[in-house]
Amino acid sequence: MVDARDLGTSPDEVQFRFRDDEPADHGTITVDACCDQTNATAVRIEPGDDARVLLPFLDRLALIEVNFPGFGDGRGYSSARILREAGYTGELRAVGDVLIDQLSHMRRCGFDSFAPDKRLDEDDAARAFATWEKVYQRAADVRRIIADIRHEA
């Protein structure tokens, strides 16, 4: 079992953040530790973790990190949406193997901060965040989907 203190000892380098509040005091713990520890405010979800385990604790959490050890493992997208669907409004941070071409999808799934392992090119990232002017399906963002726009009165 990972010692809770082993996580987050070196602060993430957050490259993109879409929030106005002050970043949470860092120091994330595992999902398992979070369930036992009543005062934790930051937690890190690994791909195999069930994000729903955290739902009873959302009120006290200010930062939830979702780790992408490899960009091809898409479980973190579902974790993010599940948290937002449950009403989580704190910071939701994608960390790990976060690349340019995943940014727009992550944003739609509810991530509002990004701490890639390797710093991304700012121009490429700006283009990526703006890739989809309109979208087809509902997600964790509040955008009106194309079908809504089509049927506006």
């Binding site: 898409g74 997208y77 995943q102 999808h105 992550m106 087809y136 399906q137 194309i146």
Partner: peptide
């Protein structure tokens, strides 16, 4: 087709 095109949650399925 429209729903599944660029679906943000399901682009990196198993």
């Amino acid at each position: 087709r429209q729903w599944s095109s660029f679906h943000p949650e399901f682009t990196y399925l198993p």
